[in-house]
Design a protein around this nucleic acid. Structure first.
Length: 320
DNA sequence: ATCCCGATTG
DNA sequence: CAATCGGGAT
């Protein structure tokens, strides 16, 4: 057992803390279209998109996605290539998530008779749905979730109540704070607080933070936030190259590696084995056919791309 | 450069 | 537990 709980405590007047936040949220908050629905499918689409993209950019993609695939049955019946293509068209990144969403729709249709599970535990059985998304969907669709713990909530709890940067502590604090049976408004409210008031750079007075009178950070002036792992640079990364493969294969139905290579890297060297030492013993990386095959192999393992042999050459295309 | 309502796989 | 997964906006 961790002794993390011994370091912090929530205010005695927990009810006042709750009421203050809910009142603040209900008085005024950002308007997003997915806050106007309780359809679990529509909620799930919004959550998966929101994991990776600023909310403002999700609005258009969300509406377009649901216009094209209005129900889980519609999505399940679609070709994966089209779903991944949509993801790329709308610059949503993380193509695996398009695959997960497609898979989850198939699960709902095939294993759940078209009806979403209504509990966090049940929802986690869906592909691509982890603890965060399960609680979000359970909350916003069914008002039946537990406290959501994401990076926003962690930041708020750490600052306001000095909860230590420890997953178990965050989990316990978030659960203890949420009013039972009010997950929809509560999770919306606490994430709204993290989104507009308790941002990385805090905005307490301008946003009229409802927790100032209890806030440890507001009192001490120490607005340190839990560390969020910094991502490696994207430029030149393998992720960027994967994205270029998907984009090229969306544009052209299928491409031989010789045509695909130059579209992925301008310094692609056709017909050269990569990475191995040359005659002089130099080991400068060369990006040739073997390198590209490795990239394609990973995308095949991810179920996003398939490679076929035709007339002695390898063709790549999006997996259907 | 850093941020953005995480999840899966090894 | 660590590594991996995109790309636009600021």
């Amino acid at each position: 057992m961790s002794d993390a709980q011994s370091d912090w405590s929530l205010p005695d007047d927990r009810g006042a803390v709750r009421d203050a936040l809910v009142s603040w949220y209900e008085a005024d908050h950002r308007s997003f279209p997915w806050r106007e629905t309780d359809d679990p499918y529509e909620i799930l689409v919004s959550e998966v998109m929101s994991q990776q993209t600023q909310l403002g950019r999700v609005v258009e993609a969300w509406a377009a996605f649901l216009d094209r695939w209005p129900t889980p049955a519609d999505l399940a019946a679609a070709d994966r290539a089209d779903v991944v293509g949509f993801w790329t068209d709308h610059s949503l990144g993380y193509n695996n998530r398009a695959k997960y969403l497609h898979e989850a729709a198939g699960q709902v249709v095939d294993e759940y008779d078209g009806e979403f599970p209504t509990t966090p535990e049940g929802l986690q059985d869906l592909m691509g749905v982890g603890p965060y998304t399960a609680n979000a969907v359970a909350s916003f669709a069914f008002d039946n979730g537990d406290a959501v713990v994401d990076t926003n909530v962690k930041r708020v709890l750490h600052r306001a109540f000095d909860v230590p940067d420890d997953d178990a502590a965050f989990e316990a604090a978030a659960g203890a704070l949420m009013p039972a049976g009010e997950s929809r408004v509560w999770n919306n409210a606490i994430m709204e607080l993290g989104g507009v008031a308790c941002e990385k750079s805090p905005n307490c007075d301008a946003a009229g933070c409802p927790w100032r009178e209890w806030c440890h950070a507001y009192e001490t002036g120490d607005f340190t936030a839990p560390d969020v792992p910094t991502q490696p640079s994207f430029e030149g990364s393998r992720r960027q190259m994967r994205g270029r493969v998907i984009s090229a294969l969306k544009e052209y139905e299928e491409l031989p590696l010789s045509k695909l290579g130059p579209r992925v890297r301008v310094d692609y060297v056709p017909g050269v084995s990569d990475g191995s030492a040359d005659e002089n013993g130099d080991s400068d990386a060369e990006y040739g056919r073997e390198w590209l095959r490795g990239l394609i192999a990973d995308l095949e393992d991810d179920g996003l791309v398939e490679a076929v042999e035709s007339d002695g050459e390898t063709l790549a295309r999006l997996r259907r």
